[in-house]
Structure formats: C-alpha cells, structure tokens
C-alpha cells in the first residue's frame, strides 16, 4: 500500500507538469489546426532561457520563469508567423505541415544542443522541505508546481467559458470559415492562441526542468509521446479531456514503474493510447459522432 501511495504521489506531480503542457498543446491543435510536434522543443528552449536568467542573470528561478514563459510565447508566435502560416497559405496537405513541424522540432532541439553541448544543467533553486501526506511525498517545489497546474487549469476553463476570446477560439476551432463570416477575426484569434499556448509551453518546459532537477537539451525529446497520449486519451481538442488525460498518463506511468518495471513507463503510455484509439478513438471527452 505504501508503494502504491508513494507512486501515486509521484504520478500526481508528473501529471501536473504534463497537464500544463497538454492543455497548451491541445489548445494549439484545436484552434490553429497545426499539430505542432515542435512543442517539446519550444518547452526545452524556454527552460534554457529560464536557466540563463537564473544562473547568469542571477534572478530567482521563479522570476526567471517569466522569461521562459515569454520565450515560449514569442517563439510560438514567430513559428506560426514565419514557418507554419506560409506553408498553410500554399494549401499544402496537412501532413506536410506535420513534417515541417518535425523539422522545426529537430532544428530546435539539436540547434540548442549545438549551443549548450551534451552537458546537463540545474537551476539554482531550493526544492524546499519535504511534506508527507497520506503516504505520499512532496517537496515544497512540487506542491508549488501542482498549485500552478491547478491555477492554469482554472484559468483556461475561465478563458474558454467566460471570455469573448475564449468563445472566439472555440468558434474558430469548430469552423473557421463560419466564424470568419460571423465576424470573428480568426487570424487575430489564431495569433493570440499561439501566444497563449506558447506561454503554456514555456511554463511547462520550465516547471518540467524544475521538477526533474536536472535537464539537458534533449530532455523533452520523448515528451511529445506523453503529450500525444494524454491528448488522445482525453480527446483531441478537448481541454478538460487533456487535463484528465494528463492525470491518467502521469499516474499510470508512475504506478507501472512501481509495480511492473520502470523501463515500461513509455510503453504503458502508448499501450493506453493504443487501447483508447482501438476502443474509443474519440477519447474520453469526445463524441462517437465525431470519430
């Protein structure tokens, strides 16, 4: 039981980081119609900007995080403006955009590695005291990350439900032509979505690096696998589904590490994904009519 509870605790913190990333990822996909496989690259590049500000700029890591968030936001906006949009304007097949995204991901990751080298890095930051709670262990840092994740979830829900921008995002996601004809400035909405989802990528990258304690240029290379699994589990384009998907994947991978073998973490994530695609391809929050 103690192993289960401690693993559950580790799963919760993994899920918190994953949830921030997945919500941004699925928001980006739903509104812009671009499956941005370079999302992990944006995350880790943002984490390194935070590192630079933390170590070389002598800023507190939480203050430096603002730089990481801004980097993710601006980088994503520029990525759309100068890479994805020109390709989309040429009416190329959607799969072409995916290939472009893959190229961007490789450029972003290995370009970063060329700059920072194959070494690994740590923020100058205390993990804080250890908290024991119902057999689970959390550091103060991890509790802070969980709180941030909850805050992000609430903010995204509020954005979508109660703001004009959220409604415009949903309309653009559902049918961009109809939204445009109804007076929604879809290009502006899409640009704003890149800024917001990019900020979430920057935030996710930084808290991911904070949580792992040590990171390198390729640390997020396989993270896209977990992102896709979480997104499909909840249903592509479903923000609440993304939250639930992230929680499920995060906890399942840690429990599998405790009770099966740590080497099967990624395998478990994809077994869940394959199972979902087989039996409920529209995800937990999707509808059968749209499958």
């Amino acid at each position: 039981m103690s192993v289960f509870l401690s693993s559950l605790g580790f799963g919760i913190i993994s899920a918190a980081v994953l949830a921030i990333a997945t919500v941004g990822f699925t928001m980006q996909f739903a509104v812009t119609n671009v499956l941005n496989l370079a999302y992990g690259s944006v995350m880790i590049n943002s984490a390194f900007v935070t590192y630079f500000l933390n170590i070389h700029g002598h800023l507190n890591a939480w203050v430096a995080l603002i730089g990481g968030v801004a980097t993710g936001s601006v980088a994503s906006y520029l990525l759309n403006r100068f890479v994805y949009t020109p390709f989309q304007r040429r009416n190329l097949a959607p799969i072409t955009i995916v290939i472009v995204a893959l190229g961007v991901d490789l450029c972003g990751t290995f370009g970063l590695q060329a700059i920072v080298g194959g070494s690994y890095f740590t923020y100058r930051q205390s993990q804080g005291r250890e908290w024991h709670f119902l057999g689970m262990y959390f550091s103060t840092l991890q509790l802070t990350i969980i709180a941030i994740a909850l805050g992000v979830m609430i903010a995204v829900a509020w954005l979508l439900r109660y703001t004009r921008l959220g409604k415009a995002m949903r309309a653009t996601s559902a049918n961009p032509n109809l939204a445009r004809n109804s007076g929604v400035r879809t290009q502006s909405v899409i640009s704003t979505t890149w800024l917001i989802s990019g900020a979430l990528a920057g935030l996710a990258g930084t808290v991911f690096a904070m949580n792992t304690g040590v990171f390198e240029a390729t640390s997020a290379q396989l993270y896209i696998v977990l992102l896709l699994a979480a997104m499909f589990l909840g249903g592509p384009g479903e923000p609440y589904g993304a939250m639930l998907g992230a929680a499920t994947i995060g906890i399942a991978t840690e429990l599998s590490a405790a009770f099966i073998n740590p080497q099967y973490k990624m395998v478990i994530a994809f077994v869940i994904l394959l199972g979902m695609l087989t039996f409920r391809p529209y995800g937990l929050f999707g509808s059968e009519r749209t499958a």
Partner: peptide, 20 residues
C-alpha cells in the same frame, strides 16, 4: 470544449483526428 460545434461539423473534426 474547443470542438463543441465540431461535433456537428463531423468532417472537420474527423480530418483533424486523422491528421493527428
């Protein structure tokens, strides 16, 4: 969610899912 209306516009959502 983002795809509330997409459920009525099946092909849009289906296209996205196939792509994904």
């Amino acid at each position: 969610g983002f795809t509330d209306r997409a459920r009525r516009d099946g092909p849009v959502a289906r296209g996205k899912r196939r792509l994904a």
